[in-house]
């Protein structure tokens, strides 16, 4: 069973529907017991980092996420679910996050006012390091993004994919051991995004190819 972590941070239906389409059994849940016993965990999220961290704290899920990650459970963070893994975010006047990946989350500051915020739409992901979750996905494939903040990891070796927007190449995919995280929404990214979920379902949580 795959746990889709529900911490009242946005709409999880599309994640569930993507896993359904692959025939995988999943459950949208905030129950610590179910998350602990899940074979795999998807940690999605939309909205603001501050509200997300408060909701995680209220549901007492921070420790549970640390526990499953520490135990090696294959773990997929998506969008705000990626951002919350970092040390802190500039959003909401500065938000302390989970601190599972070193680095911070910053706001885009486009020099060209026609580069709009949020960064919304399809953009290419350059695969800067191979990973089993990229299997069968061509380099520079486009995925669907919608976000105003981006992750800036401290350790460059954790960056697996980059995307260009507002004058920077930001980390659109990071991985650390059994934690893989994407800034884009694979569940909204057509056949190619579905392939990433399919790869996740086969992944043993080890970074090797």
């Amino acid at each position: 069973m795959i746990a889709i972590v529900d911490y009242k941070a946005g709409n999880l239906t599309s994640v569930k529907l993507a896993l359904d389409a692959l025939g995988a059994e999943s459950r949208i849940t905030s129950d610590p017991g179910r998350i602990r016993s899940a074979e795999r965990v998807v940690f999605p999220g939309v909205g603001a980092a501050g509200a997300g961290m408060r909701a995680l704290a209220e549901a007492n899920l921070g420790l549970v996420l640390r526990e499953v990650i520490g135990r090696g459970t294959p773990f997929l963070g998506v969008c705000v679910g990626m951002q919350l893994l970092f040390d802190r975010s500039e959003e909401d006047g500065g938000t302390k996050c989970l601190g599972l990946i070193e680095g911070e989350v910053r706001r885009f500051v486009p020099s060209n006012p026609l580069e709009k915020i949020p960064h919304m739409g399809w953009n290419a992901v350059r695969q800067v390091r191979p990973h089993p979750l990229f299997s069968g996905i061509e380099d520079e494939s486009e995925f669907y993004f919608v976000h105003s903040y981006y992750c800036a990891p401290l350790v460059p070796s954790g960056i697996f994919g980059t995307t260009r927007y507002a004058d920077i190449d930001f980390a659109s995919v990071v991985c650390r051991e059994n934690v893989f995280a994407t800034q884009f929404h694979p569940e909204r990214s057509g056949r190619i995004g579905l392939r990433l979920y399919e790869n996740f379902l086969r992944w043993d949580g080890r970074p090797g190819c």
Partner: peptide, 8 residues
């Protein structure tokens, strides 16, 4: 529609 397509 949500079941049938994987784009926004």
């Amino acid at each position: 529609v949500a079941k049938a397509i994987r784009i926004p």
